[in-house]
Design a binder for these strands. Structure first.
Lengths: 209, 209
DNA sequence: CCCTTTCTATGGTGATCGCCATAGTATGGC
DNA sequence: GCCATACTATGGCGATCACCATAGAAAGGG
């Protein structure tokens, strides 16, 4: 998969020597972490370089287009991971809409607890600083939401939902998840995820069929 | 209400001359607008002062504690306005949960369309930059969510919901609203609000009784 | 051996950040 | 007329911002 990531990057080294260090990958991972905690503008390159332990001198060798490119690669990685998680849950709850939804809430809540409620959603953080983003980065953020929603909608269709209902339910679920992240960070409690789960149970218990 | 705002501010001038200009109020309004569009860190004091037309020299006269104080007053104003809107909708749909929810979605969607999808939620934007905020500001953001949610929960209790169900439903609604804002900004479409409305209709049409 | 390629080090660019000290004008109360 | 208060203007503080130019080390391929 390292090949896939390198191919999605725009800096494709035309058949050169193999990478010697992991400084590049560590910079991306650190950027993803800090962008999620602090936001895009509030995170300086200095901090990213320091915390990733990467050498200061080679940053623009690895990322010729600077901070924007770093953010692009970070979000590609983030979206890929998020989609993998959703696919995984979907596969484990095939045909069962309620279980699927509950499992998603549980997983996201657990992730927040694990980070002591420090991590936000990278897509959301970037979306809240749109004027600071160039067109390419904005496009990737938007695509991240579209792709995430599509995974969810696909599952609902597999549960017998009409395509229209699957889409709107998926969109609503994704929106609720994003909002829940924000609120959970402030309250430092997974309570909001439990509230969403309860509402979901009521919904399906009464409306399903 | 000007007195209320001045009293909530920490810089209470002990019985001096009345205000002579509206530079202070304009600075707060401009800060609210820019923080909603660009975020907190990404918005510089220079820009706020310029766009508000306020004189550069008197900023720290009006806001001795600087940017943090400006943000506190901006969010107080934002939360107060938001609560007023919610109360208003609640009063107009007393006893009718479905209508209440639909009206909220419509109102928020219209607000986003009116701003050409540029405005985010101030509370959410600040919540995504928590490490840059001091304790006081963080507290006010968190309180904004609690208070908003309570207004909604109160309405649901007025519709015969049990307190527990009213609370969880209100929390879920607020979360969905926040997420919808983020997504609408990216898609530049009120579609997500309509999706939420549809899901709400299905929910009540089948579960309510 | 040399050359290409990968990667690092140093040091600085100009711009902007939030903040503040100093000084000055305007205006109403007394 | 005097003085306190309300407000503005100027200029610069040190720090940090993203970015880059120059130089060179390390290492595998020919």
């Amino acid at each position: 998969m390292a090949i896939t990531i390198a191919a999605s990057s725009e800096t494709d080294y035309v058949e050169g020597m193999p990478r010697k260090t992991d400084a590049r990958a560590r910079a991306i991972a650190t950027a993803e972490r800090l962008f999620r905690i602090q936001g895009y503008t509030a995170t300086g390159l200095t901090q990213i370089i320091e915390e990733s332990g990467a050498p200061k001198g080679s940053f623009y060798f690895h990322f010729p287009r600077g901070k924007a490119q770093l953010a692009e690669e970070a979000i590609d990685q983030y979206v890929a991971a998020r989609i993998a998680v959703l696919r995984n849950i979907s596969a484990g709850t095939a045909g069962d809409a309620l279980n699927f939804v509950q499992q998603i809430f549980r997983t996201f809540a657990a992730e927040m607890v694990a980070s002591d409620f420090q991590y936000g959603c990278l897509m959301q953080n970037l979306a809240n600083e749109l004027p600071a983003l160039d067109a390419e980065l904005t496009k990737r953020v938007a695509r991240g939401f579209v792709d995430s929603t599509e995974i969810v909608a696909e599952h609902f269709r597999g549960c017998g939902f009409t395509p229209a209902r699957a889409s709107s339910t998926a969109a609503a679920l994704v929106a609720a998840l994003e909002g829940a992240r924000t609120i959970a960070r402030l309250e430092r409690t997974p309570a909001i995820f439990e509230a969403l789960a309860e509402v979901g149970v009521q919904r399906w218990a009464a409306a399903e069929r």
